[in-house]
């Protein structure tokens, strides 16, 4: 599926890319394969990624040969300095990069053993299975109810109004929002506070019953209290979903994830149990980052 240019994103990405390209060479030699435990046993892996490269228009490479597995019902966090490719990699997992003109992904990405780039695979279906929550809360200009009902309606998941009501209520409940909004389901979603909006977006994603939820810095636009609520929510959601979260906050990664991946200049430098990454980083670059020498 080819999709039109989305100029803003492209430029933003290109800018980030240019900013980092100068330093790439000097680091490249220090990165030889990923340190830590990037691979899981075959049956534990939800996502199976081998040799993933991402190129933007003009053949600028954003991701270099990333190999990793993402486990079932785990929260995996991806950290690294800005422009390191963590968001780009995340967007590979539900083929959101398809929406950027000139963006090309190579390598193997398998979801439950099926190649997501296979001709038979459909991005619409893939995105229904792998939901995404974005950095900035982006509720649609519709009512709270319609926001949550958006996905089920698109995909025909509810056969009648009662079923739909049910899905909406359950999703809002899971997202911890139902109590706050149950009396104003018809109010516009854009009228909620920032934290509520982000939980609405999570509810919207859950409503489709995906298998994996990708979160791209979901709390960076929120205040600490709202952040705490979302973090608790993520922990609860782990029971039913696999969650990949990109974050710029190391504390957040430490609090909520089981495994942590450290990206640097488009390379996956280290992937290990969260505790190990933060207490005993194996790679010099990881250590420099978590001790605050850069980033």
């Amino acid at each position: 599926m080819t999709e039109a240019t989305i100029d803003m994103t492209t430029t933003a990405v290109l800018k980030a890319n240019t900013a980092t390209s100068g330093g790439r060479e000097e680091f490249a030699h220090t990165i030889s394969g990923t340190i830590g435990k990037p691979y899981l046993d075959g049956k534990d892996a939800k996502f199976f990624c081998r040799g993933v490269n991402v190129f933007y228009a003009g053949e600028k490479q954003a991701i270099f040969d990333v190999n990793m597995d993402i486990g079932r019902n785990e929260v995996i966090s991806m950290i690294g300095p800005s422009g390191c490719g963590k968001s780009t990699f995340l967007r590979c997992l539900n083929r959101m990069n398809d929406t950027i003109a000139g963006c090309r992904v190579t390598g193997d990405i398998k979801l439950d053993g099926e190649d997501i780039h296979d001709k038979e695979q459909d991005p619409v279906l893939l995105r229904a299975r792998v939901g995404m929550v974005f950095q900035k809360p982006n509720p649609f200009p519709k009512s709270i109810y319609d926001n949550v009902a958006y996905g089920p309606r698109l995909h025909g998941l509810a056969s009648n109004r009662a079923e739909l009501d049910d899905i909406v209520e359950q999703s809002l409940t899971k997202a911890g929002l139902f109590k706050e909004v149950k009396d104003r389901l018809q109010a516009p979603g854009t009228g909620l506070s920032g934290g509520q909006q982000q939980r609405l977006c999570i509810a919207r994603t859950i409503a489709v019953s995906p298998e994996v939820i990708l979160m791209d810095e979901p709390t960076s636009a929120l205040d600490p209290i709202a952040t705490a609520t979302i973090e608790e929510l993520i922990d609860e959601l782990r029971a039913s979903f696999t969650i990949c979260i990109v974050t710029h906050s190391m504390q957040q990664a430490a609090r909520i994830s089981q495994r942590t991946a450290y990206f640097h200049m488009g390379y996956l430098v280290e992937l290990n149990d969260t505790k190990t990454v933060f207490t005993n980083p194996q790679h010099q670059l990881t250590e420099n980052y978590i001790t605050g020498r850069f980033g």
Binding site: M96, T99, V124, F134, N138, F140, P141, T205
Partner: peptide, 17 residues
Amino acid sequence: PQSMRDGSYGMGATKSE
């Protein structure tokens, strides 16, 4: 805003939807 489009594509909507 682009974020609105991203939100919808991320849910698995087609372009026309």
